[in-house]
């Protein structure tokens, strides 16, 4: 009744909370050339779990910003300009906070839920697995 597949269908969160599900979704996104959205989503979760007093936190925040937001990649293109400015300013002013990526992550998550996740559930890669 609560098979992995049933859980994957429930929500994006359930899919990403399952090792096989996350792996298969990642493979799907690689084919769709937007795997950065998923890596960014996980990076935001990882950042939120970090000890904000650890000097590493600022370096990780900068690395996430540089890799996904500052460029013209798939994540950057999906984020609203004010959201990008908020992250950029937080880093510039060194106002590092556990929640500083939350708005950006929420926007990317909404895009994934509405697009990639729906496509995934009808994709060949998913149906073959089923």
């Amino acid at each position: 009744p609560d098979s992995p597949l049933a859980r994957w269908n429930k929500s994006l969160h359930s899919l990403l909370g399952d090792q096989d599900g996350a792996h298969l979704f990642r493979t799907f996104l690689e084919r769709e050339k937007c795997v950065d959205t998923l890596d960014f989503w996980f990076a935001c979760n990882g950042f939120r779990q970090m000890d904000i007093k650890d000097p590493k936190a600022l370096r990780v925040a900068k690395a996430i910003h540089k890799r996904y937001i500052e460029n013209c990649g798939v994540v950057s293109k999906q984020l609203k300009p004010p959201t990008k400015v908020f992250v950029r300013d937080s880093i510039k002013k060194q106002l590092i906070d556990s929640t500083m990526f939350d708005p950006a992550q929420a926007e990317i998550q909404l895009m994934m839920e509405d697009n990639a996740y729906q496509m995934f559930l009808t994709s060949d890669i998913y149906l073959e697995y089923v």
């Binding site: 909370g17 990076a43 990882g46 779990q49 970090m50 370096r59 990780v60 690395a63």
Partner: peptide, 20 residues
């Protein structure tokens, strides 16, 4: 000292489900 890429990868991996 860890490189930026290593730190980012470590951060992503730490959030992946069901680490073994």
């Amino acid at each position: 000292i860890d490189s930026e890429d290593d730190l980012l990868q470590e951060c992503i991996t730490s959030a992946m489900p069901n680490k073994k």
